[in-house]
Nucleic acid binder design. Structure first.
Lengths: 696, 696
DNA sequence: GTGTTGGCCACCGGCCGACAA
DNA sequence: TTGTCGGCCGGTGGCCAACAC
């Protein structure tokens, strides 16, 4: 039952504001795990060929479709796996593919109220919708009435009587509406999307509320996953969204009118296996993507993944994540903390970044269902500085972390680790023109991270965070430990660095400095301390998982991360390592544009448009809502070679030429600050202050 | 979507009175062609292995099911092909398998009137249904009311208010009925079947009217094929059966409430091919049979096929065929004439008896769709006498044959060949105990037929009827021609006759006697004369078809009809010849029960319940609506040895002991009548009087 | 500005006897 | 005996303003 090809803009209007299908020819990573989650039943991969947990693909074609029965929109996407030998630099595509939403078409979504969905009722049209989406109404008539004709996703036309009446005046759809509700089987909580196409046609789409087949008796779901990240359900008890009890007094027994058995995300396990099998052979394969299924996207822009995986994820990191509200009208950001960095399924998918992060939310009651997220879905923010800079940050009120008298937030009576901040991978639709999204981490901690620099071990290092706690409630920062994973080391840091033509590719390693005032001194290696007692997994779990992971996936690791195997065209070699290594070749040839990114909202700043330090000052102040006269003295930058310097020591023109990354330091401690001037090579340190990282 | 296993009796009640699934372990012929017709799209057999056009099978299991959506009943039948080496005598099974319908359960079918199917209306319960099927109503109440609960084919219960009211009083279903109509999507013309199961439970089934997906705008279909033979649609214009126009005044455009897209006969071409493939390997295979699909049954009782193929079919033969009336309430017999005996598909299915007979109907307007039938579906009758007996037959008005002044009916200005009558293969549900259903043909022409007796050449001979016309509008009766087909002759007629223990196995060969008053003398061989100019195929068609058949299927013929090959277990050898030869061994062992059959309605008469010739007289009179004092003098009977005698010459007790077949002779001509007393051996004649044949 | 409520009216589902075939 | 029709009645679909948040 293939649906109807529909207007991409209408499709997007129905899919929701957070859904962006990467354009044709762009590069994405395909995640079999995510694809499997897209199926509504468990997928047994044991019958599928072994495959990397992420497959770099080029999007070959996209068909925008709608289910003939439910009007649910979905996309059929044809993907061409890219062998490592055919890897291309995607700097340009990552930056310029999405033409910015200059032409965001007029659309309006409204969640049906009980009155809207009532059998005898009409539809209360929000004024904005009536005035911007509907045809112009002749208000001279009394009452003003017109017939509105809207096309649904199948091209069928629906006629509604649009009247402006009542006291106070309001817009209503009357005649025709009830029929529409019945035909489309809409219930309160479903959303209707009105959309004006470019040709002026009015279109109408449907977003059904996420609801089990059983109807209103289901358990309250709270927040559930949605498109790009997650879908929000406005609280207020499920009882509000009960279908009209509609007690037809007929006494027929049995044979209930079949409940809302709308097939959501009909991806079958077979189709997942088939896709994986084709991908394993390097052949093009097709996937179906339901943008409103409650699972994260399993196709992710390659640049987003790369950016996210450059971050050295560790417990304690603070982040925010975007969720769509229930009525799809807006996007909310929720704050959370990484509680555990752990491969989700170390048996079938070792070294997979999919749902790598186990998180706890500042508002856990609203996001019960979201306990594991993938790194590219979150944006790192600096939590500790927020605490310290609270007078500066207008958004600090959003965080309800209890603040310990020491000045550090406390979770459930346990000390919270103040994690260092790191570069933000600029998730989601930023359109900088800088050459590639390769972040140059700039922080004192970066120096530390440099010792674990080689990309192929990124996952290994992350795994280390969970591999070696000798106590489940403690955590050992791998401060100066040698690499512990027996993965083939493809490139030495120095070698890699050489290829970068001097561009910094340092990692942000979020390890706590030793001189934290609340942390006991940890000069000895493997010094452990408490972390999130409540959410951390038990020792047995960790050990068993690690051992399984070690034994089972050793070969897979080698295949994935060894440059030898990844350069072997005849084998499966979708190695992120080789991918990024190849990418490294291209660096330095182009000119990186400057951009800036704050902890709160991912923004970029083009330094070239600024003419002076004063302008920079004002710009940063307005950007972060700060008014600090000494801001510039808190500003450091990192140049192409990775050297960190304080801002203001040279002419502005030279500064903007050299600066590749800006960091607003929130700590006023001069001594700590000074140390950041050292080059990373011999620096071992720790500042307890997290920077507001600013990539330039 | 497998349906629900249901009570076999309910199944049969829904399937209709003409449907009889052969019981488990009985022998049937499986016809791939018929199976293909059962699929709703054309089946391409080129991908299937070559197979005989009929495969003798034993029914291994039968599952009675009902479609979950439409309530349409169907059966899953597991068939085990029988190799010729494992052929068994099936005389007993042919006679005694169907336990006579002693326990015909109480069921009642009614076609919904417009009032019944009306939205606001109730259901008018025919008195018979209310009194024999429904629970007993307490008539003391005023008005008498009760709640009737009926179980549908899925086991779901439906509640109806049954009331006896109005003036004059009548039975009605009110509350609950409308809901049932809506849920089951019933329209006027659909039938509802009420059925009282043996456990006393009331059941309700549905037979949907045969109607295209497009709804009432379809072309008028007239008569269409149905279960055992064909389904009757009561005339009266299709407009009567229009779904309630139900003009919901809502002005929504498009999106029509989906029409009656009930999938009838969902047999897929693939499943046909699969069945054929399995059958070709001699492996058990499963078929699905929709008893109410508009195609003839593709599983036919072996005995019926054998009996039918013993007839030397030729153009001009008069026959009758049973059709179910539209409301399934009764069976109507329609008269027709064989216009051409021709293999339906000589390319893929040479030598197949499937739809061997091209026919013209006395009421062609009602049976437009039925132009080709299979021999076992028709019963031979004598047409000529019917014209003459018109004063006696109340149903003679039904036949609109124009009568030529000569006394012979005329078709389109051409002379009609008055074919002799012959034995009837007793198709359909008769339950005699006579040794097998091998008919004892009794007619002068049988002698003629005996010269072509050898069974293996039955098809060949039939083919001859069409193979050698030198003019397309002429027809050459193969009067004394030697066998023309080069098939191996397995048994000589005499040999076969000997095996019959004296029972007659003569064939009825429908050749015109030479002394017919209207027929030119045809002493010379290949004397030809006109036949059915309009319906006969052209010379080119015939020649090309025959040549194709000859060249393509020569080997197949040999394989099918050579006893050598048919006894070769390793090859496909479902030879009708060997089959019937084996059958011959078992003849004469059983006792025939007495039954009677008229041309108009197939009735049986158990002579044993009668005590006198007077009773017989009355019984026959009421049976045929005749009041003739001299009826007995028109009555002849045939005894077990085939001797024909006049009724009344011996004591009644002796008569009922000896009589195996009764014939009411409608001609008062004593001379003609006398001739029927002769044994068939030396009798060569033609009587222009048709008997009302009465088998006893 | 819009969600909800209750009034009001018209339509129709549904039960009835009358009437006729 | 039963198909169809018109009458009648009550439930509800559906449009409306009032009211509340």
């Amino acid at each position: 039952m293939d649906g109807h090809t529909l207007d991409p803009q209408l499709w997007h209007a129905c899919a929701g504001g957070m859904v962006q299908i990467p354009p044709v020819n762009s590069l994405v990573f395909y995640f079999p795990q995510g694809h499997a989650e897209h199926a509504n039943v468990a997928v047994d991969f044991s019958s599928a060929p072994k495959i990397a947990p992420f497959v770099l693909c080029r999007i070959s074609s996209v068909k925008f479709l709608a289910d003939t029965e439910t009007d649910e929109v979905y996309a059929k996407i044809l993907l061409v796996p890219l062998l490592s030998t055919s890897l291309e630099l995607d700097c340009d595509e990552a930056v310029s593919t999405d033409s910015p939403e200059k032409e965001k078409p007029a659309s309006f979504a409204k969640t049906l109220t009980q009155s809207d969905a009532n059998n005898g009722g009409g539809f209360s049209v929000p004024r904005y919708c009536a005035e911007t989406i509907f045809p112009r109404l002749d208000y001279s008539a009394d009452p003003p009435v017109q017939t509105v004709i809207a096309k649904d996703v199948h091209g069928e036309m629906w006629k509604f009587r649009h009247i402006y009446r009542g006291t106070p005046r309001r817009h209503l759809l009357t005649t025709g509406w009830s029929s529409f509700v019945n035909q489309k089987k809409l219930v309160a909580g479903d959303s209707i999307v009105f959309f004006r196409a470019e040709n002026g046609e009015l279109c109408v789409g449907i977003r059904r509320t996420k609801r089990g087949v059983g109807g209103p008796a289901e358990s309250p779901t709270g927040w559930t996953y949605g498109s790009f990240s997650a879908m929000l359900r406005e609280g207020g008890g499920d009882a509000k969204f009960v279908r009209n009890s509609n007690s037809s007094s007929s006494c027929r027994p049995g044979n209930p009118t079949s409940p809302r058995g709308f097939g959501r995300g009909r991806t079958s396990p077979e189709s997942v296996i088939e896709a994986v099998a084709l991908a394993a052979r390097g052949q093009p394969f097709e996937v179906i993507f339901y943008p409103r299924a409650s699972t994260p996207e399993f196709l992710v822009k390659a640049s987003s993944v790369r950016a996210a995986m450059r971050v050295q994820w560790c417990p304690g990191m603070r982040f925010k994540m975007a969720f769509e509200t229930e009525d799809s009208s807006r996007i909310s950001w929720f704050m959370g903390t990484v509680s555990l960095v752990q491969v989700a399924d170390p048996i079938y998918w070792p070294n997979s970044p999919w749902r790598l992060l186990q998180v706890t939310w500042d508002e856990p009651d609203l996001l019960q269902n979201v306990s594991r997220v993938s790194p590219w879905l979150v944006e790192l923010v600096s939590s500790v500085p927020i605490i310290h800079m609270s007078p500066f940050s207008p958004s600090a009120k959003k965080f309800r972390l209890p603040v310990h008298p020491t000045g550090f937030p406390i979770f459930d009576g346990h000390l919270m680790i103040p994690p260092p901040f790191s570069g933000n991978p600029s998730a989601g639709g930023q359109t900088g023109t800088t050459s590639c999204l390769l972040p140059e981490t700039f922080s004192p901690a970066s120096i530390l991270g440099a010792r674990h620099f080689h990309f192929p071990s990124v996952f290994s290092d992350l795994n280390l965070c969970t591999k070696f706690p000798s106590n489940s409630l403690e955590w050992s920062p791998p401060l100066s430990d040698p690499p512990r994973c027996k993965v083939a080391d493809p490139i030495s840091p120095e070698k890699f660095r050489d290829k970068e033509d001097g561009l910094s590719c340092s990692l942000s390693i979020g390890y706590l400095g030793q001189d934290s005032p609340v942390k006991p001194k940890t000069n000895e290696k493997k010094r452990k301390f408490l972390l999130f007692g409540q959410t951390i997994v038990t020792e047995q779990q960790i050990i068993s998982k690690c051992s399984i992971s070690d034994s089972v996936s050793e070969n897979a690791n080698a295949a994935l991360f060894s440059p030898k195997s990844s350069s072997n065209a005849s084998s499966l070699s979708f190695s992120l390592a080789s991918d990024i290594r190849d990418l490294g070749h291209g660096l330095g040839t182009g000119h990186c544009k400057v951009f800036l990114e704050s902890e709160d909202v991912g923004r970029t700043l083009d330094l070239s448009v600024l003419g002076s330090y004063e302008e920079l000052h004002r710009r940063l102040g307005s950007m972060f809502g700060m008014e600090r006269s000494d801001m510039l003295s808190h500003l450091v930058y990192e140049d192409a070679s990775g050297i960190v310097r304080q801002v203001g020591m040279e002419p502005f023109s030279e500064f903007i030429r050299k600066a590749k990354r800006l960091t607003v330091r929130m700590d006023s401690s001069r001594s700590t600050f000074q140390r950041s001037f050292l080059t990373r090579g011999g620096f071992e340190s720790s500042t307890k202050n997290g920077p507001l990282s600013t990539y330039a």
